[in-house]
Simulated scan of single mutants.
Amino acid sequence: MPNLKFKNVKQFTLIFFLVLAVDITVKLYCPMRFRYFTKPLLIILLLFFYYQQKEANNKRDQLWVFLALSCFLLGDIFIINHLNPVLLSASLVFFTLGKMFFSIKFLHKEDFNVVRLIPFSMLLFAYIFLLVGYVYEDLNVFFLAAIISFFFTLVIFQFAFLRKGVFSLKSYNYVFFGVFLFLISESIMAIKTFKYGMPCQDFLIMLAYGSSIYFMTMGILFEKEGVEVREI
């Protein structure tokens, strides 16, 4: 891995989604133990690529991104065996921390339109309220952890929404789409874990989750107009 160098974004994107396809295949058809190798590779690739491009960001921004991705990496490892309540609890903690660090990264000091934010926040809050209400009876000891986790989903979605007009349009679209995909993945995972199985659930969870972390990370690299991800 230390000698791996990506020529451009297209090459990295191809490699990333090939690894994602391999992980989905392993998840669907192979013993669970093999995923302890394939699933962490997704975050490791993103961390490595972001590190190569770190000159495009200041050190404080780099720290939040590295912390967020590192927490997601640990959450990925623990949630592989989500039927184990201890590992599931640990994964919720690390995913919540990851969302918190991404939220700090997405936060900016520019003025924003409160009127535009209110209807969006109300719609998002209603969705999360209905989702939590749907799985409420089956949460049991995970109720508090789930509430905190979904709260930070609400926060990260709002901060992603407020980036519009502050950063480049490409960056805004990438990050917002990534956060949206993360919400979809998290919703399906919550229903799968605490309620009942859904058709193609494992495929949809990993496709949405893998794509979400890709788009959020790449969106951060395109924050400024005219900034190109440099060739390595």
Rank of each mutant, 00 (worst) to 15 (best):
S187F: 07
I15K: 04
L63I: 10
S211W: 07
F48W: 15
I184K: 04
I43F: 09
D111E: 15
G178E: 05
A90I: 06
S171A: 13
P85W: 12
A208H: 05
F157R: 10
L130R: 14
S149P: 02
L207R: 03
F167H: 11
K195E: 10
Q62C: 09
F176N: 10
K195A: 12
A56F: 12
I104R: 12
S168Q: 03
G133D: 12
R116T: 06
I118V: 14
V22T: 01
S70I: 02
I148Q: 05
T193M: 11
Y51G: 09
P40D: 12
L87V: 04
F176I: 06
I80C: 04
V227P: 02
S171N: 11
I44M: 13
Y134G: 03
E55W: 08
F17N: 04
I128S: 07
S89M: 15
G98Y: 06
F17Q: 03
I156T: 08
D61R: 04
F151C: 06
Y51T: 05
F203E: 09
F101C: 09
V141C: 08
Y50H: 11
L87H: 05
Y50R: 06
L87W: 07
K7A: 13
F120Y: 15
G98S: 05
F161E: 12
N3A: 13
F12C: 01
F125S: 10
S121G: 01
Q11K: 13
L123A: 15
L46R: 06
G210Q: 01
Q52I: 03
Y196H: 15
F142R: 05
L204E: 05
F194R: 03
I128R: 05
N173F: 14
G226T: 01
A56D: 01
V155F: 10
V115K: 15
L18G: 13
Y172E: 00
A56R: 09
L20M: 03
V229H: 06
G165A: 06
L139I: 00
M216D: 02
T13I: 07
K170C: 00
F72R: 07
L46M: 11
D76T: 02
I184F: 11
F151A: 03
R60Y: 09
P199Q: 13
L123W: 14
E223I: 02
K105A: 10
N3G: 12
Y51V: 03
L20V: 00
I44F: 13
T25F: 14
L42Y: 15
F152D: 00
F37D: 12
K99C: 01
A208P: 01
A145D: 09
L204I: 03
F143L: 10
I15Y: 14
A160P: 06
I44R: 03
D76V: 00
D138W: 12
L169V: 08
I191A: 08
K54E: 10
H82Q: 13
W64I: 08
V26I: 14
L97I: 06
N8L: 13
F17M: 03
F203L: 15
L204H: 06
F94L: 11
N113H: 10
F48Y: 15
N81M: 05
L20F: 04
